[in-house]
Write a protein that binds this DNA or RNA. Structure first.
Lengths: 336, 336
DNA sequence: CTGTTAGCGCCTTCAC
DNA sequence: GTGAAGGCGCTAACAG
């Protein structure tokens, strides 16, 4: 209750009349145990002095910190913030979570991993689609290997390309499932707002979808954002081609943007054209018309990745856990 | 596990044939300068060996780390994730951001602040509404003072109650402005979905609104969430009272929930009842009907708070920056 | 069980 | 401009 001149373990030990080692053993969870009497005195002294262990000193002495890194493309994107919430809840009692926002830039990803190595972080969570750039993926895998070799853990949410434990959303299969469901609803001609060509998630969702429908599919690329979806939809509308009867945006955020573009042209889903998304972002479940999409258990994915990375058990090979997506048919594609 | 021979400054110094001190002076930015020749050798050796400074050791030797803590109620809430993105972008080159998710629990807030003290964090950002609980606020202010006294910086986004630099959204004034604008649109009777009674932001928005309209205002409390808004709206609809002609939810997320509840009862905004929110969450700007709300520059607020806390200049008193909200009238309250 | 004694990797006065 | 030496606060062998 008196934290003025940063009190150290030595102060606590002195106040309790015990050795540094004993004090250390009680304030943390050492394997060695301490007699009840001394234990009480140390605890009392620590409380009295308002002792707080210096995490940096602990990390240095023991060779590793309790830090867990969380690397995301963009924390403002609900996809990532929802996963982050899952991870945060799991990491919380076991360590501290440091956030690395890469703004989608692969070089920042690499850089952040280096920073985590500098922190002697216990583990790192790499969340988000890997890129189609093999050179970068190789570099990243090398960094991951280095980090792992130095005693850290790594888990990814995305594609299994890094030689680490990975939670893999089944983008391809789920997109195919969505395509079949839409076909089942009577949709016949499709356009896909495909996201950036550099992201594997975008590619997988596009290809899974395309492979599952018969006939031609028009493709419009663009950023994985609301504005990207809007712009791609505008290009579709301006293409001069006859309008397809359904439009699949490879994520919900783009789908929302696309719907806005349609509205601005006086078009309405599902009356004039069906619209489907992907992810089932919780905050977007209430838009009207409600969006047909593929549900991914985002928070659970974040939680699971954190569990994988926190688990100290020995393991022979990286663990890969596939997460199926669930097709959710809602109003935006309901064909009468 | 067998830790890889992690390279230290001593290794670099040896490889370069210089002293530890010299090596240290070049790899970081010391005030002392080093001859070009040796400087080059050290840099080369560091690159050769793949040296990465141990951040914990640096923090311990210099007494303070580059860590900045970011405390939010719920990172999955777009209000917080947007602010977090602003903060992350600003902190990035200067340090690392550690994320503290409190799930809205005041005791976690306190605990996380302690953790940041243990990290010898350079600064902490406390984002989110303070609570109406004066006892807790006092405790928190004491922790903040302790942290500050030990050399750390603190900035808050919310109410100016902690004796720290603060970015203050003008909840009360903006809510009043919204009320006047709605009245100007012809709305006469109002209900407010007021959020949790324990949060000052909720209280301020409610009171600002209520004070600016003439006549009675029905109030329905509930959590600051989508489900909270839904439930509060249901209570309103079930109250048996005649429906007000406009409903103000104190944040957008609740407003979305309320709109869902209305839809489920076959009601529609603005035809049957107007609906307004607060925050202008970017992801929600495209809902239909588009939501009348109060725009807060969330990302800029996060950025500004980070700037305040990163600025090493001396300051006499805490700086308080007020951020006005901008009323945005959209379809959800357009009265014909 | 408890205390003594080395460091962990780096920064930073001090001398030269 | 450069080097030598003393900690920073804590943990982890080793003795007792």
């Amino acid at each position: 209750v008196n934290p003025q001149p940063t009190v150290t373990l030595a102060d606590v030990a002195a106040a309790a009349g015990v050795s540094l080692a004993t004090a250390s053993r009680v304030v943390n969870g050492s394997t060695r145990t301490v007699g009840a009497a001394l234990r009480g005195k140390v605890l009392a002294a620590a409380a009295e002095l308002g002792y707080t262990a210096n995490a940096n000193a602990q990390a240095m002495a023991s060779g590793r910190s309790k830090t867990v890194g969380l690397i995301v493309h963009d924390i403002a994107d609900p996809y990532f913030s929802t996963i982050a919430a899952g991870a945060a809840g799991t990491v919380d009692p076991h360590g501290i979570l440091v956030l690395g926002n890469t703004w989608g830039r692969p070089d920042y990803e690499l850089e952040f991993l280096t920073t985590m190595r500098a922190q002697r972080a216990r583990a790192v969570l790499l969340v988000g689609s890997r890129s189609t750039d093999l050179v970068h993926t190789r570099l990243l895998a090398a960094e991951v290997a280095g980090f792992t070799a130095s005693g850290g853990r790594v888990a990814a949410v995305g594609q299994d390309l890094l030689g680490a434990d990975t939670v893999v959303p089944e983008n391809r299969a789920a997109a195919a499932g969505l395509a079949r469901a839409l076909t089942g609803q009577g949709h016949r001609s499709f356009a896909v707002l495909a996201g950036p060509p550099g992201l594997l998630a975008a590619r997988d969702r596009l290809e899974g979808f395309r492979d599952a429908v018969s006939g031609e599919v028009e493709v419009f690329e663009g950023p994985f954002t609301r504005d990207g979806g809007y712009a791609a939809a505008v290009r579709l509308l301006d293409s001069g081609e006859p309008l397809p009867d359904c439009l699949f945006a490879v994520n919900d955020v783009m789908a929302i943007g696309a719907m806005a573009a349609l509205r601005d042209r006086g078009l309405e889903a599902p009356r004039d054209i069906g619209v489907a998304g992907f992810d089932d972002i919780p905050t977007l479940r209430d838009v009207a018309p409600s969006l047909t999409t593929v549900r991914l258990p985002l928070e659970a994915m974040g939680r699971r990745a954190a569990e994988l990375v926190l688990d100290d058990g020995v393991r022979d090979a990286p663990r890969v856990e596939r997460v199926p997506g669930e097709v959710v048919l809602r109003e935006s594609t309901a064909r009468s």
